[in-house]
């Protein structure tokens, strides 16, 4: 179509421009309407919000973690009180002195007392390089292997991030979380061990035992440090044993 110069052509141009603007505003208005509709949908008649169960799970985790800390505190307190009671029994009732001493000895072996002696502090941590691979991070199995090597040197007491290892302890992983004694621990992992320093160092660093960890330390930047210390504090076990099915054979 060809337009001739003059007033009718200008009017036509104006009409086209107005129409274009109207159409553009219509499209923009419609988009905003759709976005608002998506943002503020009417509440569902059934539970449909996928966030609610996740938040509920996180809340449960937070409250259970707090309960765990409270229970552990109460257990530590009551164990101290029992020890004090038994101490006073030793002096007031001579006949029970022997059995109280037996309890005290067994508590040391069971890991119910804190130990402060010469030993090692071992640090195992994820590589600090940006490339995260299966070989550059710490796995629960690494901690289990180190612990097994340490028991092999007749170590007296071991803790991982202040969780004392006892006969019922397990070191587990859940996706990217590590649990010791059902308690979540986080990177870096500090293993404190009381025992023969040179024997333990030899076993940990010689390359005969922990080949995989030593390889990943060299090739993937896994952090693995072993340091001697004149006084290592290995905390007392603050968890529960719950012996329900075992009996001492008479």
């Amino acid at each position: 179509m060809q337009f001739l110069p003059g007033a009718p052509q200008v009017d036509h141009m104006k009409n086209v421009l107005r129409l274009k603007t109207t159409l553009l505003l219509l499209a923009v208005g419609l988009s905003i309407g759709i976005l608002f509709a998506l943002q503020f949908q009417a509440p569902q008649t059934r539970v449909f919000n996928p966030v609610s169960p996740f938040i509920a799970l996180q809340d449960s985790k937070t409250s259970l973690t707090a309960d765990q800390a409270d229970l552990k505190n109460s257990i530590s307190t009551i164990r101290d009180e029992i020890s004090k009671q038994q101490d006073s029994l030793k002096s007031t009732k001579k006949s029970t002195k022997g059995i109280v001493e037996q309890v005290e000895e067994l508590k040391i072996i069971a890991g119910l007392t804190q130990l402060k002696q010469r030993g090692l502090v071992i640090t195992l941590a994820d590589s600090q390089s940006k490339d995260v691979t299966i070989d550059s991070i710490v796995h629960a199995a690494d901690l289990r292997d180190i612990v097994n090597v340490l028991w092999g040197t007749k170590a007296q007491a071991i803790s991982i991030n202040d969780q004392r290892l006892v006969s019922t302890s397990s070191v587990d992983s859940i996706v990217n979380t590590i649990l010791v004694n059902n308690t979540k621990i986080a990177n870096p992992f500090i293993i404190k061990v009381v025992g023969d320093q040179s024997k333990m160092k030899q076993a940990l660093l010689s390359g005969d035992n922990l080949k995989d960890i030593l390889r990943r330390q060299k090739s993937n930047g896994l952090i693995y440090n072993v340091e001697s210390s004149p006084e290592v504090t290995v905390t007392a076990f603050d968890g529960g044993f719950a012996i329900k099915h075992s009996k001492v054979k008479e």
Partner: peptide
């Protein structure tokens, strides 16, 4: 992962309550 953590916490806390 959180579900398993919660399950472990429930199991662990039950044991702690029994010990207490």
């Amino acid at each position: 992962a959180i579900s398993v953590e919660v399950a472990e916490l429930i199991k662990g806390n039950k044991k702690l309550q029994e010990e207490l």
